Simulated assay, not measured.
Amino acid sequence: MLDCKPAITPVDCKLNLSIDGEAMHDVTYYQRLVGKLINLTITRPEITYAVSFASQFMDSPTVDHLNIIMRILRYLKGSIGEGITMHNNQSTVISGYTYADWAGNAIDKKSTTGYCTFIGGNLVTWKSKKQQVIAHSSAKAKYRAMVTTACELIWLKGLLSDLGFSSSTPMLLMCDNQAAMHIAANPVFH
């Protein structure tokens, strides 16, 4: 893929796949590629969603699924030299950003939770994972994502405390859904 045309995004935003299609002859080739990309997500968090999407088809990948992997590789070719940088900001403020795509998976209609957390402005953890249950509204999907992110923030605060960096500043959790924030703020739901 050294001579391929670079892609500007790791996955097509209008991707709509099914489990049907031309089956691959060598399943282990697909599995090895996905495994290598999973390892790469440690330093390249922007491909996490695309790689986790492609990893759903490890048992019986099709040629269309392989095209997703090739798109990720084309994106990586165009973004060589990018990665995570850390700066000493003399801050232990913990913050998190969360997002969920409601019923984003066309096959099983499950939502995907995504979040990233920061300490002192430095990215320290991130995750993209399919939710276990089907959410009946975007507010519920995003509320579940907020809960997952809040658990991660609490874990980070405990880790910093164990390391001797206790902080009295409140943690910040950012979400883009007003309904989910109202659910989280209402004590009746707790």
Rank of each mutant, 00 (worst) to 15 (best):
V27R: 13
A23N: 05
S79W: 08
I80Q: 03
L156H: 07
T62C: 03
D26C: 13
T28N: 08
L73S: 05
I69D: 02
V11W: 03
H25P: 00
K110S: 09
K36A: 14
A179I: 14
S167E: 14
C151T: 11
N177R: 06
G83I: 00
T85S: 09
W126T: 15
L153W: 12
A100R: 13
V93W: 03
M146A: 13
N88C: 14
V133R: 11
T43R: 06
P10S: 10
F189Y: 11
G35D: 03
V124L: 00
S95P: 09
G81T: 10
D108E: 05
A23M: 05
N39F: 13
V11F: 03
S18D: 08
K129V: 14
F189G: 09
A145V: 06
W102E: 03
A145D: 07
D101C: 13
L37Y: 07
L73K: 05
N16S: 07
I119M: 04
I38G: 00
T117L: 03
T112H: 03
L33A: 01
S161A: 15
P6F: 05
I47W: 02
T113L: 10
I183D: 12
F189V: 07
E82G: 02
R71F: 05
W102H: 04
L153T: 07
V34P: 06
K109C: 14
I94V: 15
G120V: 04
R71S: 12
T112L: 02
S168F: 09
I84M: 01
L123W: 00
P170W: 02
N67S: 10
M171F: 09
R44Q: 06
T41L: 07
L76P: 01
T92A: 09
K130R: 14
K157D: 02
M1E: 01
D20Q: 07
D162C: 15
K36V: 08
S52D: 01
Q90F: 10
A135E: 00
H136R: 10
Y30R: 08
C151S: 14
G81Y: 11
I38Y: 05
I42Y: 01
A145K: 06
M174D: 06
